[in-house]
Nucleic acid binder design. Structure first.
Lengths: 236, 236
DNA sequence: ATTAAAATATGATTCAAATCATTTTGAAAC
DNA sequence: GTTTCAAAATGATTTGAATCATATTTTAAT
C-alpha cells in the first residue's frame, strides 16, 4: 500500500484552528504541536476500537469519521460523526476509561494525535479549554438525547429522513449545493437510523420515487428540503 | 395545601456534601449557601419545564426526580433520573440555553436552588468544579448512548428488564434489600423503556409469572437478579 | 479483463408490538 | 363512606418492520 504523503501543518497554522484549540496560547499550541503525530487513515480503516486503552487524543484535520458502539448480537450503532476540526477520544482521556466507541474513517482522513499527558497538562491550567470541553460534551449529549427520542418514538421513514437531515447538517453539500457531502452505504445509514438494511433501501427508494431525494449510487441529492423535513416529523 | 416544613442545612452541613460540591472551599460554600433557596416539591410537581429560561441551578437534597423530554405527538421520554446529591439544570446554565428537559418530582422532594450568577461565578475560578462538571456530563452522555443502543436494538422485554435494573442501580433497594426503592406507574416505566403502557404491563406480568420479579402494586421486588440480567441481554 | 465478495434491490412471509376496545381496580377528592 | 377519574389489566386485531430468500449490481482484488 502506497502511503499518502502527510503534510499536516502545525497547530498555529492549522485550517481548523478556530475550532477546539482556538483558545490556546502560543506556548500551549507549541506544547501540543511539538510532538503531535501526523496520521493518514484510508477509508474504512479504524482509528481506535471501543474498549481499548485510551492513550491519546485525536484531532481530525481533514476527513470524516463515524463513531460506533457495539450493541446486541454484535450489531453496530452509529452514535455520532466527526468532521474537520473535531476531536476524538477526549471523553475517555478525561474519565480515564477505555475508548467508549470505535472510530472509523468514512473517507481518506488526516488525523493528528496528541499524547494523553500533553493534553491533560494543557487542560489542567486552561479554564477556557475546560469550558470548551464542557461545550463539546454538552453538544454531544444533546445530540444523543435527541437521537434516543427519535429511535424510541419515530417510524422508520421518519428516522431515515432525520438521518439524511443530520448528514446534511453535519457535512454540508457538495459544490452543487444539493448533494449531501458524504457517501454512505445503505447498511451504514441503517446503523444510524436503528433499522435494517432492507428497510433503509426501501425507504430511500420511496423518497426517491416521490422525488424528495434523488439517488445516484451512494450520492444522495436533496430535491425538496421542505418535504424531507416534513417526512422527518421534526419541529425545531 | 399544607406546606411541609423545610429544614435543609447549609452546604457545609449537607448530607450530600461529598457529591458535586465536594471540592468547594469554605468561602465558596458560603457564597453558594448564603442565598440558596430551600424548596419543597410534592410528588408529581414540576421543578422546571423543557424550553423555559434557565435561571438557576437545582441541587437535590432529598427525593427523586425524573427528567423527561417531549417527543413526537407530545409523547414523553424519560432520559434520566436524579437522586440525592445530584444537580439539575447545570447544562443549560453553562450553554446559556433554555432547560433541555422537564424535571418532575417522583416523590416528595427537597431541592435547593442556586442562582445562575453565583454558580457561574464559583465555577469560573474553580478548575476542580469544572472537572466535576465534565465528569457529570461524561456520565450522562455514556448513559444516553447506552440507552440509545438499547432502544434501537433490544426487544421490549429486554428493555423492560434493563429499565428495572437501571432503577435498582440508581435508587437501590428498600430496607428489605429486594424491593426497588422507587415507585413508578406502568406508564412511566413505558416512557423509560420506549414502549407503550400495555406492553409494559404485559411484560411485567410475564416476569412476575416466571417469578423473576414480584409485583406488589407499584412496588417491584427482584426475586432473581441473575435471571433478570439474563432477560436484559446485558453484558458488562 | 476476470472473479469473488459485498452491496443493493425486491418479493414473500412472519412476528413483535402497537393499537383498539373493554373491564376491573386503585387512588384521590369530597 | 361515596364518587369520579386514572391506572391497570386483558383480549382481539392490525400493522409496521424485521426476517428470510433470491436475484442483480457494484466493488475490490488479482
Amino acid at each position: 500500500m502506497k502511503r499518502k504523503s502527510i503534510d499536516i501543518p502545525s497547530c498555529d497554522n492549522c485550517k481548523n484552528s478556530k475550532d477546539f484549540f482556538c483558545n490556546l496560547s502560543e506556548p500551549e499550541k507549541q506544547i501540543i504541536s511539538e510532538k503531535k503525530g501526523d496520521n493518514f487513515y484510508k477509508k474504512g480503516q479504524v482509528i481506535f476500537y471501543e474498549g481499548n486503552h485510551a492513550n491519546g487524543l485525536f484531532c481530525l484535520y481533514d476527513g470524516k469519521v463515524k463513531l460506533t458502539k457495539l450493541g446486541k448480537d454484535g450489531k453496530e450503532q452509529i452514535i455520532r460523526f466527526s468532521k474537520d476540526g473535531d476531536i476524538l477520544g477526549y471523553r475517555s482521556l478525561l474519565s480515564n476509561e477505555p475508548y467508549h466507541a470505535t472510530a472509523t474513517a468514512m473517507e481518506d482522513s488526516y488525523i493528528c494525535t496528541i499524547s494523553k499527558e500533553k493534553f491533560l497538562t494543557v487542560i489542567e491550567d486552561n479554564p477556557k479549554l475546560s469550558f470548551k470541553v464542557i461545550q463539546l460534551l454538552s453538544k454531544d449529549l444533546k445530540g444523543a438525547e435527541q437521537h434516543l427520542i427519535d429511535v424510541a418514538q419515530k417510524s422508520v421513514k421518519e428516522r431515515i429522513a432525520e438521518s439524511l437531515l443530520l448528514l446534511q447538517t453535519t457535512f454540508g453539500y457538495l459544490a452543487d449545493n444539493r448533494t449531501i457531502n458524504i457517501q454512505m452505504s445503505r447498511s451504514e445509514i441503517a446503523d444510524m437510523a436503528g433499522t435494517t438494511t432492507e428497510s433503509t433501501i426501501r425507504t430511500l427508494a420511496q423518497l426517491n420515487e416521490k422525488n424528495i431525494i434523488e439517488l445516484n449510487g451512494k450520492n444522495i441529492v436533496i430535491n425538496d428540503m421542505k418535504e424531507l423535513i416534513k417526512c422527518s416529523n421534526s419541529y425545531d
